[in-house]
Design a protein around this nucleic acid. Structure first.
Lengths: 239, 239
DNA sequence: CCTACCGATCGGTAGG
DNA sequence: CCTACCGATCGGTAGG
């Protein structure tokens, strides 16, 4: 009924296609061969599902993705994802939560390294921006885009939980932006500036193409140039 | 075929509501009463459907919206939208196309008015930005957000057609941005600056709340302050 | 985690 | 534009 996704494993167990229905020569044991006793891999399959879901949710949207698609992507049958996740929505939430936790972690690491240099607001902002581009556009980064573009499909409770994580992530930016604003290098209301800046960055998901065009470094440079006022020339000091 | 901006025409033509369903005492002739001969209102119902679809597509997404939802929103039965549009996808395209045509028109009008003043790159950009916020966030503006966030559900052909309209809309920005870049008031690669700026604006759809917070004017001011370098103080002229 | 299945929903259509 | 439907698909479940 479903021999879909003849990915690698067990590919070609028979002439395949419809053959299954016509004649099943010898009985093969139900289910897949069990691992030898005591050997379990629960966590792994769960992770596989999350990764596959992230990729599919990003490409086709939550509503445009079938739990069967996800199952097929990891070589499972249609009902099996529900052994790991109690609902499709739970899978979506898992994708987003992992995306946020990874992003928060990576941001903290990047910032820690940068803080060893002499304090420089602009340099710190560049680190944050570069890191954000990495999280959005870097290799294997489908999680945050899903988080950004599919939250409509969350329950209210899930939305609240994720909003907290998002708050943690964005909180780091606040002192950096405030310092630059106080130094006159970011103009306008800081609150609106923050929203506009995040928009500029997050929208890159829509047009960025890793295979051509700018690199993430160039993107970060362009963003810095656009948002942060250039320092007045040194000659200004002369009164 | 495209009577855009059908704001309030024909509002409240009947008491409407559910009454129809509850009890139909005497046989009423199939279908709704025909207009007297020669009087047709094809276009109107079509417009109603497009408006309802725009609202629902924006709120629930294309995949999250049912053709039955749309039918119900305009008081039709489930199969009737297909009398006006041959498919759900055709309705989506109609929403987006109307959105783009309206946006292009409004942009041209705004710009024409602004060009009567002495040429000033910054002033022109402010007009474009303010107008764009209007198109995105103004009253009755669900069309462009749908266009921005649901294009995944288009066919390749539809995508190409809309890309052309989008090109027309964005082409207007190019000389304005180039002029400001040449004047040193927009920094970084112009091409990237344009993408980042559009991102900052388009993302406002995600967070803007008309009932509280900033006005569209304040938004436009904030964007200008963020993107356009302030002119150096006049004292600079002294060598 | 598979097998086998269900109930609900959905886009779309025939015919008037 | 309504009535009455259909075929396909989908999320999810029982039971092993």
């Amino acid at each position: 009924m479903n021999p879909l996704a003849a990915r690698s494993r067990f590919a070609l167990q028979v002439p395949v296609t419809v053959a299954t229905k016509c004649a099943a020569p010898e009985k093969r044991p139900r289910g897949r061969p069990r691992k030898t006793a005591g050997e379990r891999d629960d966590g792994n399959r769960r992770v596989e599902l999350i990764n596959a879901a992230a990729k599919l949710f990003r490409k086709n949207g939550f509503d445009g993705t079938t739990t069967r698609d996800i199952a097929a992507a990891v070589g499972m049958h249609s009902g099996s994802p529900f052994y790991h996740f109690k609902s499709k929505g739970a899978l979506l939430y898992a994708v987003m939560e992992q995306g946020m936790r990874t992003a928060i972690l990576q941001q903290a690491l990047g910032l820690r390294a940068a803080e060893k240099s002499p304090p420089d607001g602009a340099a710190l902002l560049r680190v944050l921006i570069r890191n954000h581009f990495g999280v959005l556009l870097g290799p294997g980064s489908d999680f945050i885009p899903v988080m950004l573009y599919e939250s409509r499909s969350l329950t209210a409770r899930q939305r609240t939980l994720l909003a907290k994580l998002r708050g943690d992530y964005e909180a780091v930016w606040e002192p950096v932006l405030n310092a630059l604003h106080n130094a006159g290098r970011i103009k306008g209301q800081v609150k609106l500036a923050r929203l506009l800046i995040f928009g500029a960055l997050n929208w890159s998901v829509q047009w960025f193409d890793a295979k051509k065009g700018a690199s993430l470094e160039e993107l970060a440079d362009a963003a810095m140039a656009l948002f942060v006022q250039t320092l007045p020339p040194a000659t200004l000091k002369t009164p």
